[in-house]
Amino acid sequence: MPRRPRDPGVPCSPTEYFGTELRAYREASGLSRPQLSERLGFTPQWIGQVESGNSAPSEEFAEACDTFFGTNGVFHRIWKWIQELGRLQVLPPGFRPYAEAEGDASYVKAFAPLLVPGLLQTPDYARTVLEVGQRPGKIEELLAVRMERQELLAKEDSPWFLFVLGEYALRRKVGGREVMCGQLERLQDLASQPHITLQVVRDDAPVYQASGFVLLEFKERASMCYMDSGGGYGPLLENPRDVDERAVAFDQVRSAALPAGDSVRFVRAVMEGL
Score class of each variant (00 low, 15 high):
residue 3 R to L: 15
residue 8 P to D: 03
residue 8 P to A: 04
residue 8 P to S: 00
residue 10 V to N: 03
residue 12 C to H: 11
residue 14 P to N: 01
residue 16 E to K: 13
residue 18 F to I: 07
residue 19 G to P: 01
residue 20 T to M: 14
residue 20 T to Y: 14
residue 20 T to I: 04
residue 28 A to W: 09
residue 28 A to K: 14
residue 28 A to N: 09
residue 30 G to P: 05
residue 30 G to T: 10
residue 31 L to D: 09
residue 31 L to E: 09
residue 37 S to W: 10
residue 38 E to K: 14
residue 38 E to W: 12
residue 39 R to A: 10
residue 41 G to H: 03
residue 47 I to T: 08
residue 48 G to A: 15
residue 48 G to N: 08
residue 49 Q to C: 12
residue 49 Q to G: 05
residue 50 V to M: 11
residue 51 E to Y: 07
residue 51 E to T: 06
residue 54 N to C: 06
residue 56 A to N: 03
residue 57 P to T: 00
residue 62 A to P: 01
residue 63 E to R: 15
residue 64 A to W: 01
residue 66 D to N: 05
residue 67 T to W: 12
residue 68 F to M: 03
residue 69 F to M: 07
residue 70 G to L: 07
residue 72 N to L: 10
residue 76 H to E: 12
residue 77 R to Y: 03
residue 77 R to K: 13
residue 77 R to V: 03
residue 83 Q to K: 12
residue 85 L to C: 07
residue 86 G to I: 11
residue 87 R to C: 04
residue 89 Q to S: 12
residue 93 P to Q: 13
residue 93 P to W: 04
residue 95 F to I: 04
residue 97 P to Q: 01
residue 98 Y to W: 14
residue 100 E to Q: 13
residue 102 E to Y: 02
residue 107 Y to D: 14
residue 109 K to G: 05
residue 114 L to N: 10
residue 114 L to F: 07
residue 117 P to W: 10
residue 118 G to H: 03
residue 120 L to Y: 07
residue 120 L to F: 09
residue 122 T to V: 04
residue 129 V to N: 06
residue 130 L to I: 01
residue 139 I to N: 02
residue 141 E to C: 08
residue 142 L to N: 10
residue 144 A to T: 13
residue 147 M to E: 08
residue 149 R to Q: 11
residue 150 Q to W: 07
residue 154 A to L: 13
residue 154 A to F: 13
residue 155 K to A: 15
residue 155 K to N: 13
residue 157 D to L: 07
residue 160 W to Y: 12
residue 161 F to K: 08
residue 164 V to W: 06
residue 169 A to W: 05
residue 170 L to R: 02
residue 172 R to P: 02
residue 173 K to L: 14
residue 174 V to E: 10
residue 177 R to Y: 11
residue 179 V to T: 06
residue 180 M to V: 03
residue 181 C to K: 14
residue 184 L to F: 03
residue 186 R to I: 11
residue 187 L to Y: 05
residue 187 L to H: 09
residue 189 D to S: 11
residue 193 Q to I: 06
residue 195 H to Q: 02
residue 195 H to L: 05
residue 200 V to C: 09
residue 200 V to K: 05
residue 201 V to S: 11
residue 203 D to K: 08
residue 204 D to F: 10
residue 204 D to L: 03
residue 206 P to T: 04
residue 207 V to D: 12
residue 208 Y to M: 10
residue 210 A to H: 00
residue 210 A to Y: 04
residue 211 S to F: 12
residue 211 S to M: 15
residue 212 G to Y: 06
residue 215 L to I: 10
residue 216 L to E: 00
residue 216 L to K: 03
residue 218 F to Q: 01
residue 222 A to K: 07
residue 222 A to G: 15
residue 222 A to I: 02
residue 222 A to D: 14
residue 223 S to W: 09
residue 224 M to F: 00
residue 224 M to P: 11
residue 225 C to D: 04
residue 234 G to K: 00
residue 235 P to D: 10
residue 237 L to N: 04
residue 239 N to F: 06
residue 239 N to Q: 14
residue 241 R to T: 15
residue 244 D to R: 15
residue 246 R to P: 07
residue 246 R to E: 01
residue 248 V to W: 11
residue 250 F to P: 08
residue 252 Q to F: 15
residue 260 A to M: 13
residue 262 D to I: 04
residue 266 F to I: 02
residue 267 V to M: 00
residue 273 G to C: 02
residue 273 G to S: 12
